[in-house]
């Protein structure tokens, strides 16, 4: 009998957190730009990259 593995649960938690982070209304927050690059562009790729980093950290753990 298989119990939900901690890795799967952690990944799912990241997925659940990703939804509100990458949809409105949070997407309405970044305004203006930083160093000439629109803040929303940096925000989207930053959060996206962060989620991927987290998933990599979780997925590549031993066991």
């Amino acid at each position: 009998m298989k119990r939900g593995s901690p890795m799967r649960q952690r990944l799912a938690a990241v997925g659940l957190a990703g939804w509100p982070l990458l949809t409105f209304p949070l997407l309405g927050l970044p305004e203006g730009g930083i160093g000439g690059i629109p803040a929303i562009y940096l925000y989207l790729f930053g959060v996206w990259g962060g989620l991927i980093g987290l998933a990599a950290w979780i997925g590549e753990q031993k066991g």
Partner: peptide, 9 residues
């Protein structure tokens, strides 16, 4: 797809 794949279970 990024979010969907996280539901690996």
């Amino acid at each position: 797809p990024t979010l969907m794949l996280l539901f690996a279970g």
